[in-house]
Each structure stands twice: as C-alpha cells, then as structure tokens.
C-alpha cells in the first residue's frame, strides 16, 4: 500500500532528520511510530504527503511515486491521505461542520467551497462521521468551543471525510489526558479496522503504542532501529531507541494494562460487538 524507499531529509540548516528510511505498510495495517523527540517522526509522516519535501528517496502510494508529482497530482494524492494532528489543528473559528467538510476540499471547486455548497453525499457523510465519533449534537458549534477530546474527534472526522486510502496520525494524544488519550487511540484503531484502512501513528507514549497497535517501528536520529511486534519491545530495544534508562517500569506498566482490564481497554477483537464499544465511547467522551 505505502512503500518508503531510502527516504532522506536534510533541512536547510544541515540537520539530518531522516536517513535512508525504508519500510512498507500493508493494506489494513496500523503502524505505531515511536522514538524520542527530534528522532524525525513528524518529518517522516510529513514527507509522505510532502508537507515537507523529502531531500531524496521515494514514497510510493500504490503505484504512484508521490515525490515525482506535479502540484495538481500532489493535490490528488493528498486528498487520498487523511491526516490527524497533535494539537488537533482545527480551524478554530469555523464551525465543526465546516471543519469536517474541509476534508472534502480536494474534491470540490473553489466557488462551491467558498459558498459552503458541498455535494449532498459529502454533507451526508459528514453527518454520519460526526455521529460515528459522537458529536452529532455539536455540528454548528465553533471548533474553539469544544474540549480537547472533542476537537480530536472532529480532527478524525475531517480526515475520514476525505475517504482516505491511508491515515497519517501525528501524536494524536499528546495534548490529551490519559483517559481521553486511550479513547481517541481506540477510536482511531477501530475505524482503521472497520474499513481496512492502513495508518501510521506517531506516538511518544510507548505503553499506549504497545496497547493499541500490532506493528511498531522505532526511529532514532532519523534511522529505523526497530521494526516488529509490540511484544518484542524489551529493555534492550527501548535502550536502542531512547538510550540508557531503567525500562522495567514502562514495560511492566504496559503488561499490567494488557492483563488488568483486558475486557475493557484492549483493542476490540473481532468478537467484540463494535456498536457496544461505540456507545460506551460516546457516554465516556461527551461531557
């Protein structure tokens, strides 16, 4: 689905953010990208949709080499890639609905978007997504009137409104409290599972990553130093990624959560009735 080949980014200042990053994301696969701050996580996902221009290497989305595209071609690829941001990055003075509909901008012409006359199916989809993330009664509120967790839900709805083939998620929980963080992560992973949507999720919280994703890539100073199963993250690997530290607490914490509230917090198995989870989600998330 997504293939990065020898991706390198050197900033104008000479800082080498990425060097020779190569990996493939399979359809439906959710990848957690971990690493210390400054390891190049943000740069990496922004190179995928060229919000940051990579210095060399290729990014293949399906058969298309994103790095070779013209401006128009880039716009068309970008609308296939949904993105969710750390500080939500909602347009604060627009309504929730406008924020969600802005995910459709790549599909409609300027005047249509200027007069907010989006096609009926786009509006219907936006309503459905807002219902899905539990915000159907906040449609006409301004984005800056929402709480952090609610804003991130709008951010998710905006990304999904694009009908994406890939999700890029940049530290979705960095500005949220632990409980909301888990709700948001669960929501993202659920949605990806429902529609077989592949995703790359930048996340600095190792425990959270272990809890929710099945594949983890560890980035250190712009180089991939780990790529594998969350269960294989041991003290040795974490030291390789983050440096020397006492890792026993981190690892145990992750294990505890896994075993402690298995029925509640672990990502939904296929047997778990999704609608039930969503209802719980709504009750918990909306206050």
């Amino acid at each position: 689905m997504l293939r990065l080949n020898d991706l390198t980014k050197v900033y104008a200042t000479g800082d080498r953010a990425l060097s020779g990053v190569t990996f493939t994301v399979e359809p439906g696969q959710v990848v957690g990208l971990i690493g210390p701050s400054g390891a190049g996580k943000s740069t990496l996902i922004r190179c995928v949709n060229r919000l940051i221009e990579p210095t060399s290497g290729q990014v293949f989305l399906g058969d298309i080499d994103v790095t070779k595209l013209s401006r128009r071609g880039l716009r068309q690829v970008r609308r296939r890639i949904g993105m969710i941001f750390q500080e939500y990055a909602l347009v604060e003075r627009l309504t929730v609905m406008e924020n969600v509909l802005s995910g459709r901008l790549g599909y409609v012409g300027f005047w249509r978007s200027f007069f907010r006359r989006f096609p009926p199916e786009a509006v219907e989809k936006a309503y459905r997504l807002l219902d899905r993330v539990g915000l159907s009664d906040q449609v006409d509120k301004r984005a800056d009137a929402l709480s952090g967790g609610q804003r991130q839900r709008v951010g998710i709805a905006r990304a999904l409104e694009q009908d994406p083939d890939l999700l890029l998620v940049d530290e979705p929980t960095a500005s949220l409290d632990p409980k909301t963080s888990r709700q948001i992560m669960r929501l993202i992973v659920e949605i990806c599972d429902e529609s077989g949507l592949p995703a790359i999720i930048n996340i600095h919280d190792v425990a959270l990553a272990q809890q929710f994703v099945r594949r983890i890539i560890g980035l250190q100073a712009g180089v991939v130093v780990f790529d594998g199963n969350p269960a294989d993250l041991d003290a040795e690997v974490l030291t390789r990624i983050y440096g020397e530290e006492d890792w026993s607490a981190t690892i145990r914490k992750a294990d505890d959560e896994e075993s402690g509230d298995a029925g509640d917090d672990v990502l939904p198995k296929t047997s778990d009735p999704v609608s039930e989870v969503i209802d719980r989600e709504r009750l918990a998330g909306l206050t």
Binding site: L51, V77, R78, M83, V91, L94, S102, G103, R158
Partner: peptide, 30 residues
C-alpha cells in the same frame, strides 16, 4: 496566524485559494 491550521487544510488536498479561504481568512477576520 497559526501555521498548523494552514498545514491541516493543505493536507486535505485543498488548492491555494481554498487554503486561504478555509485556514487563513477565519483566523484574520476579527
């Protein structure tokens, strides 16, 4: 203005004029 809002709208595949309309104008209106 807050550049992250501009980045977010750009990432949806919006054109330049749409980015101005959706990300820049709301921020400078007051």
């Amino acid at each position: 203005i807050d550049a992250s809002q501009v980045e977010a709208v750009t990432a949806t595949g919006a054109s330049r004029s749409q980015v101005v309309d959706y990300a820049v104008v709301p921020q400078i209106l007051p």
